[in-house]
Write a protein that binds this DNA or RNA. Sequence first.
DNA 1: ACAACATATTGACAAATTTCGATATATCAA
DNA 2: TTGATATATCGAAATTTGTCAATATGTTGT
Lengths: 93, 93
Amino acid sequence: MDYKKTANLFKALADENRLQIMEILKDGEKCACKLLEALQISQPTLSHHMKILCDAELVSGRKEGKWMYYSISKAGIKNAKTYLKELKISEGK
Amino acid sequence: MDYKKTANLFKALADENRLQIMEILKDGEKCACKLLEALQISQPTLSHHMKILCDAELVSGRKEGKWMYYSISKAGIKNAKTYLKELKISEGK
DNA sequence: ACAACATATTGACAAATTTCGATATATCAA
DNA sequence: TTGATATATCGAAATTTGTCAATATGTTGT
């Protein structure tokens, strides 16, 4: 098990603003500008958070002209679920 | 949804030493002294990490004489799994 | 009561993270 | 090409987190 990678995955979910971003993206793909409207943070800060979420594969981004569209990505969520599942199976021994 | 509580839950999993602790506890209940042997950290640091894991309900502690026994707790894991499940169900809309 | 041991708490410091303003890059429209 | 707009990157300040040494608390055995 890769502690560093797993820690980074959970770090990505360990911030209130990023959780709120995930919450918004649950509704489907959104433009960065829409996310910026919804959150009380600056544009560079949003860009930073999106990079963290994308690096963790929790979100994927798509560029269309000058806009960036973000949506939830399965890979990161699957990794997190797999980790939690493995905690559970051996629990209680 | 309580962003602060959820962020704290994932924060608890967002540290390499705490992930290693969870890994050891997968094998079953362990004394704090056993954990201390396994990790390259000081006793106060271990105590601090155990508090964070307990607060997140990922681990529960039991005092027996002068020893503390820790084991994985279902509640926190269930909360994390529930959160991830809710991300998935509405994904792709 | 006292000494030895296990764990928790405190206080301080270093490292990591979040944040923003300023600036750079890229795209579109006139 | 020039100006407007969307996003990314840089650099610095503020906050949070991880860490340890010192100390406190609580338990056991003598």
